[in-house]
């Protein structure tokens, strides 16, 4: 690149930013110059926020969600049903479920899905921790809420096989047609799954 014409600190920032997902070298240099151009207040606030992110957050020792207080506010909330555990792949999935305002149990974040081709195996996910949590005996139902992808399905099938002998109730999120969708334009796999998981009325 044209790095020789730029101060080292700008190059350093640009290169760091372009390591982020979805940000290429062009966007990175645009962001760097935006921060540079008289917005020192914004740049410092960003620096503080990043520092706080690294120094203050950690994983909850019960559910492995990202938190500042351990255990996290959800695991310590007496209004929530601690006997119902919803298993998700990522913290963002947990947030999506929270937005519904309809789920009052607690969570367990795996931090990924099984994907042997990308080198993600059972020992790389928080599965041992989930099993230990259930063995402690205070869980009645486990809701498998991994993504409806081929990796998510594989992970759910593996979890089912591993948790079944522990004698807890295991359920899987319903799957089927999206709201506002149209049968005519639904793909064959979605329709097939919707048929399989149809409900008695």
């Amino acid at each position: 690149m044209y790095t020789a014409a730029l101060p080292a600190s700008v190059v350093e920032l640009t290169e760091t930013l372009s390591a982020l997902p979805g940000i290429g070298p062009k966007t990175a240099s645009r962001l760097a110059f935006f921060l540079l151009r008289g917005k020192s207040e914004l740049a410092l606030r960003l620096a503080e926020a990043l520092k706080g992110l690294v120094e203050r957050t950690r994983f909850c020792s019960i559910c492995y969600n990202v938190t500042e207080a351990d255990p996290c506010p959800i695991c310590t909330n007496p209004a929530r049903n601690q006997r119902m555990v919803c298993v998700v792949e990522e913290p963002l999935d947990l947030l999506a479920l929270e937005r519904t305002d309809q789920y009052h149990g607690v969570y367990h974040v795996l931090h990924g899905a099984l994907s042997p081709m990308e080198g993600v195996f059972a020992e790389d996910l928080r599965i041992n921790e989930l099993e230990a949590r259930i063995r402690r005996g205070d869980v009645e139902e486990v809701i498998l809420a991994t993504n409806p992808t081929s990796e998510g399905d594989y992970t759910a099938a593996y979890l089912l096989q591993r948790l079944k002998p522990l004698g807890v109730r295991i359920t899987r999120l319903g799957r089927g047609l999206p709201m506002g969708g149209d049968l005519e334009y639904a793909d064959a796999v979605t329709l097939m799954r919707a048929l399989e998981s149809r409900q008695e009325l």
Partner: peptide, 25 residues
């Protein structure tokens, strides 16, 4: 492809062989 990747991983690093079952299904 997944099962083959997992077989190699189990050979080289060990791990839970029960991960094979859903793929075999």
């Amino acid at each position: 492809s997944r099962r083959n990747a997992l077989l190699r991983h189990l050979r080289d690093f060990g791990g839970d062989a029960a991960q094979l079952a859903p793929l075999e299904e």
